[in-house]
């Protein structure tokens, strides 16, 4: 087990390194530069700004400096758009917000998605299955930029304690959380259903049924462990994605999370910020996947046997 974890960690570091290198190259290949204001800068000022941030050095020197600063000083560099603010500061302000929203929405997603997937699988091809799966399909098809304003107008404007947008009180988390939660719940429901169906068709379930095991016990004790595998594999990266922010939901609900920075840093060519964010997101994905692997290993005896 420990060997697997170490192995995965090693792979993770390699993935992060490659990811960061590709980002470093790609962001510099995009047309334009970070100092592209409304007004065109005179050449002497542009040159001065670039030299202030070492951007007029050769590619390799910049690349070496970047890693050197991260590895020796833990410095991810300054934001080139919000001058005087470091990338670490931006992430440390935005991450707690996205984390709170992400955890809340994932709780909603799990609470709605997994039970409805189980119910649908249990009542396979009956009206209850059809209706749950229809709703899930709608949930998957409706994009966040439709669901968010619809929820904002339908609920936020009409229920006094809900807020249409903004981030100044605890209840502001409800609508964005619900939006992200519903979207992920739809995926979870479908994955849980298919995972459960795989398990429910197996011989040991038939045996258990023949022995007279109650439906509740059949699902909770026998089927759930195996049936949740696809949902769990999805949950890891989905959780990493949600806690690192969603641009659409953040824009629609004016949430000061990480998603806005992702998009804005790219369009603004804020080189260091986008590199820092990609590295952070990559790290979250690696950790979440590792966590899911460990979890699957623990609940799935077949995996344990294989190792």
């Amino acid at each position: 087990m420990l060997k697997t974890i170490m192995n995965r960690l090693g792979q993770g570091v390699l993935v992060l390194f490659v990811l960061e290198t590709i980002t470093f190259v790609l962001i510099r290949l995009l047309p334009g530069h970070p100092f592209m204001g409304e007004k065109k800068l005179p050449d002497h000022i542009l040159h001065q700004l670039q030299s202030n941030y070492g951007l007029n050095e050769s590619f390799w020197v910049q690349y070496a400096h970047y890693w050197q600063n991260i590895l020796t000083k833990g410095d991810f560099g300054p934001s080139l758009i919000r001058e005087g603010v470091s990338v670490s500061e931006i992430i440390s302000q935005a991450f707690p917000v996205s984390l709170l929203l992400g955890v809340f929405s994932m709780i909603i997603a799990v609470m709605i998605g997994i039970p409805s997937g189980i119910v649908a699988a249990f009542y396979k091809n009956r009206w209850i299955d059809w209706s749950v799966m229809f709703i899930a399909l709608v949930g998957i098809c409706v994009p966040a930029f439709v669901l968010a304003p619809v929820l904002g107008i339908a609920l936020g404007m009409n229920i006094p304690f809900l807020s249409v947008a903004g981030w100044d009180d605890w209840y502001c988390v409800i609508l964005p959380g619900l939006t992200l939660g519903i979207l992920n719940a739809a995926y979870l429901a479908r994955l849980t259903r298919s995972g459960m169906l795989d398990v429910l068709n197996q011989d040991f379930i038939r045996t258990a049924k023949a022995k007279g095991v109650s439906s509740y016990r059949l699902i909770v004790r026998h089927a759930l462990r195996g049936g949740l595998t696809p949902a769990l594999s999805f949950l890891g990266p989905a959780f990493a994605a949600v806690i690192t922010g969603s641009f659409v939901v953040e824009t629609c609900f004016q949430v000061p999370g990480m998603g806005m920075h992702f998009v804005n840093a790219t369009t603004d060519r804020d080189y260091f910020l986008i590199q820092g964010l990609v590295l952070f997101y990559g790290l979250m994905i690696v950790v979440a996947n590792l966590f899911v692997d460990v979890l699957l290993y623990m609940i799935n005896p077949q995996l344990r046997k294989a190792s």
Binding site: S163, A165, T251
Partner: peptide, 18 residues
């Protein structure tokens, strides 16, 4: 000062007394 980029969000916030 609230940095609201999206004009639709901003208009909704205005009508929700924010």
């Amino acid at each position: 000062f609230l940095p609201i980029v999206n004009g639709f969000t901003e208009t909704r916030m205005f009508f929700d007394n924010k």
